[in-house]
Design a protein around this nucleic acid. Structure first.
Length: 311
DNA sequence: GCGTCCAGGTCTACC
DNA sequence: GGTAGACCTGGACGC
């Protein structure tokens, strides 16, 4: 679902975001599968990341992001004039997606202590792409559980198309909680292919839309990580794997978020393919303390960084 | 082409 | 606290 830029009625704007010295655009954009799920899209050859954003006045715009040494360059397609307020919102949302305001210098300092992780700081790795909203991250994470990546993509595309608002440049904005809450289990099952996850997604959207579950406050929560993890686990359909990944996107890295893929990858890297208990994996990474979830993910995806990210 | 089996996380009921 | 079975889809496999 590529964003189209050939509509003559669209105005094009350009914005530049200054980035921290320890930031690498493409390693962040391609840090995990989110770049592959709409309303994100990406182009590996051109190293661009596309994103459809919803602004507070209801305007839906398309952005194409490209990185350089100290900037992220945005090309924005909009059907309406972009006010200064709109531009501020776009900057804020993209900065949040790319974690530009997250200080990971302590992580890079820790990484330099380990020979096999020295590449991390040199490469500017460690920031994980996230959605503009916690709501979107959690809906997508539920859609990753207990299925193939192809089915996850199908679910997310269908949810966006069924409930999201169309973008003039092509594609859809991700639906708001109230838009998803207005659905039914039947529609989610049959048209979105979410299967047994339908009541989980509907219940979650209803709680967020009603204000009973203020998930957007979780990114600035003062709760300890175990307390925050417990809150995330309280969402029906979110278990240890999904919660571990969600708290990473909230900026907490104490959980490994084990799923079948990383278990297999760990076995390949450490035990010649022999399966090991989860507790063995936990013990192996315990020494990395509060950053163990991030060290773990970067080790599991080390090949990506060396095969796909050589600058 | 059809039927069967299996993988993939989480929930609930039960022990 | 631990375990078994159900949930749903799509891919692999055998016929």
């Amino acid at each position: 679902m590529a964003v189209q830029y050939n509509n003559a009625s669209l105005a094009t704007y350009r914005l530049d975001l200054l980035t921290p010295p320890d930031f690498n655009f493409w390693r962040t954009a391609y840090s995990h599968g989110w770049c592959d799920l709409p309303p994100f899209n990406h182009n590996v050859e051109e190293r661009t990341l596309d994103r459809i954003l919803r602004l507070s006045d209801g305007l839906i715009i398309a952005c194409r992001l490209r990185g350089s040494s100290r900037h992220v360059h945005l090309r924005i397609s909009s059907a309406r004039h972009l006010t200064e307020q709109s531009r501020r919102e776009i900057r804020t949302q993209i900065r949040s997606c790319l974690r530009l305001d997250e200080d990971i210098s302590a992580f890079h300092t820790a990484a330099r202590r380990y020979h096999h992780f020295r590449w991390v700081a040199r490469a500017g790795a460690g920031r994980l792409l996230r959605a503009p909203t916690v709501f979107e991250d959690i809906v997508k994470m539920i859609c990753t559980t207990n299925c193939s990546w192809a089915l996850t993509k199908t679910m997310v595309i269908n949810i966006s198309r069924e409930f999201g608002d169309p973008c003039a440049a092509g594609g859809w904005a991700f639906p708001r909680p109230d838009q998803l809450a207005g659905s039914t289990e039947r529609v989610l099952r049959q048209r979105c292919k979410t299967g047994y996850r339908a009541p989980f997604l509907l219940g979650f959207a209803e709680l967020v839309a009603s204000g009973k579950l203020p998930v957007e406050t979780w990114r600035r929560s003062s709760l300890s990580t175990p307390e925050l993890y417990k809150s995330v686990c309280s969402v029906k359909g979110v278990g240890p794997y999904a919660a571990g990944n969600i708290v990473r996107l909230l900026g907490r890295y104490d959980y490994l978020a084990l799923d079948s893929w990383v278990r297999k990858k760990f076995a390949e890297l450490h035990t010649r393919g022999r399966k090991v208990k989860d507790s063995t994996i936990e013990r192996a990474f315990a020494r990395y303390g509060e950053w163990r979830g991030l060290f773990f993910w970067l080790e599991m995806t080390h090949e990506w960084h060396h095969e796909k990210f050589v600058a």
